[in-house]
Design a protein around this nucleic acid. Structure first.
Lengths: 206, 206
DNA sequence: CACCGCGTAGGACGGCTGTCCTATTATTCC
DNA sequence: GGAATAATAGGACAGCCGTCCTACGCGGTG
C-alpha cells in the first residue's frame, strides 16, 4: 500500500476518534488498531502525536472549505447560504447529539490542555466566522456583518452543546426554526426591514 | 487538622483544577500539590478519582442552588431573576474567557470519556433548566416555559464557548444586550405582548 | 505514663502512554 | 535476479498514572 494512502487512513481514523473520544483520551494504540497497523509504524508517517493532530485539523479545514464552496455553488443568494449553515445542526443532529460539535469540543479541549495546536484549531472557527461575515455583507449589512456572524456561531455552539447534553432532537428543530425566523428579518432585502430594538426575539417556539 | 476540613480543601482544589485543566488531564499529584498533602493520603478521604469527581459535582450543585436561592431572595419578579441568569456570562466573563462554562465543558468532557458520572454532571444543567422553566411559568408562559428555558441555556452555552475561543468581551456584552431585548418581549406582563412570528430576532446589535 | 485511633506520609505496584530503535517484509529499478 | 529503497512490524524504554500498603506522628483518654 502506498504511504499516502496509509497516511490518509491514519488521519481519517484519528479524526473520527478525536471527535468521538477527545484528543487526550485517544491513544496511539487505539488509532493503530482502527487502521490495522502496528504502533511503531506510526512514526514513519508522523513524528509525534501533535503531528497527527495538526494533520487532522488541516483535513477538517479543507473539508469545511470544500463544504462552504459547494454551498456557494448551489445557493445563489447569501441568505440561502446562511440558512445552510443554520441547518448544519439538523443535518448532523445524530453526531451532534452523540459527540457535540467537532469544532467547539476540540477547541475547548485543546484550550484546557494548553496544547500548542490550539491556534490552528481556532482557525476552524475563524473560517466560519469570516465566511458568515462575507454572507451578511453581501446581504447588505456590512457594518453589522461580524456581529451577526458571531451570533450565528453562538447559536450553533449553544444548540450543539445542549443537544449533546440532553439528546433532544425537538430542541434542535425548535431553535433552528427560531433562527430562520430571526434571519428572515435581515434577508428581506433592505436595511429598513430590520425591526427596531424591543420588537425582536419572540415567536411561536413552543 | 480535621478530616472534614482537609476533605473540603481537596474538593475545592479539585473543583478549580477540573475547571481549569479538565478532569482527565488533572492528576492526583496535581491536586495533592495544590492542597499540600501527600498522594497516598488521598485514599483516606476518597476511595477513587471518580469519588472526588462526584464530590465536586455535589459541591457545584449546592453552590448553584445557593446562588439561585439568593436570586429569589433579592429579585422579586421572575423577569429580574432571568436577567440575573443572562448576566452570568458578563459577571463571570474573566473565567469564561479563560476556561469556558464550568457546566458545559465538564459535561462535554465526561460524555467523551464515557464516564459513569455523566448523569450526575447533567443534573447541573437540569437544575438550571428547571429553575428557568419555573421563572418563565411565573412570568405567564407556562406552555412555552421549558422551550424558553432551553433557549436561555443555549444562549449562555453559545456565548461561553465562543467567548472562550475568541476571548472577546465585547461579543459577550453584545449578546447579553440582545438577550435582554429578547426577554423584554416576554416580560411585558401579558401574553399578548409577545410579537408574532417573523417579527422577531433583530435589534441594534452592532 | 501507656495506649489507642485519627490523620498523614511516602514509597511500591502494575498498567498504560508516547517515543524510539531495530529487524523484517514488500516494492521498485537496473 | 539482485540490489536499493519503501513500508511495516514489534519490542524496549522511561515516565506518568491511579491505586494500594505500611509505617509514622500526634492528640486525647484511661
Amino acid at each position: 500500500m502506498g504511504a499516502e494512502t496509509t497516511r490518509a487512513h491514519i488521519v481519517e481514523a484519528a479524526d473520527r476518534l478525536f471527535y468521538h473520544q477527545g484528543y487526550g483520551h485517544t491513544s496511539f494504540a487505539a488509532i493503530a488498531e482502527a487502521v490495522h497497523i502496528s504502533r511503531g509504524n506510526f512514526y514513519y508517517h508522523f513524528k509525534s502525536k501533535d503531528d497527527i493532530l495538526r494533520a487532522v485539523i488541516v483535513a477538517r479545514l479543507e473539508s469545511r472549505r470544500r463544504m462552504l464552496e459547494q454551498w456557494e455553488a448551489e445557493e445563489s443568494d447569501p441568505a440561502g447560504r446562511i440558512r445552510r449553515f443554520i441547518e448544519i445542526v439538523v443535518t448532523n443532529r445524530a453526531d451532534i447529539q452523540s459527540y457535540g460539535c467537532p469544532v467547539g469540543t476540540l477547541t475547548t479541549e485543546l484550550a484546557k490542555l494548553g496544547h500548542p495546536a490550539l491556534d490552528e484549531a481556532g482557525e476552524l472557527f475563524t473560517l466560519f466566522r469570516a465566511w458568515l461575515r462575507e454572507q451578511f455583507t453581501q446581504l447588505g449589512h456590512p457594518a453589522r456583518a461580524d456581529a451577526l456572524a458571531m451570533h450565528v456561531l453562538a447559536f450553533s455552539q449553544g444548540v450543539a452543546t445542549l443537544a449533546h447534553a440532553f439528546r433532544d432532537e425537538d430542541f434542535i428543530r425548535r431553535e433552528v426554526r427560531r433562527m430562520h425566523d430571526w434571519l428572515s428579518a435581515y434577508s428581506a432585502g433592505s436595511e429598513a426591514a430590520v425591526p427596531a430594538a424591543h420588537e425582536d426575539g419572540a415567536q411561536a417556539d413552543a
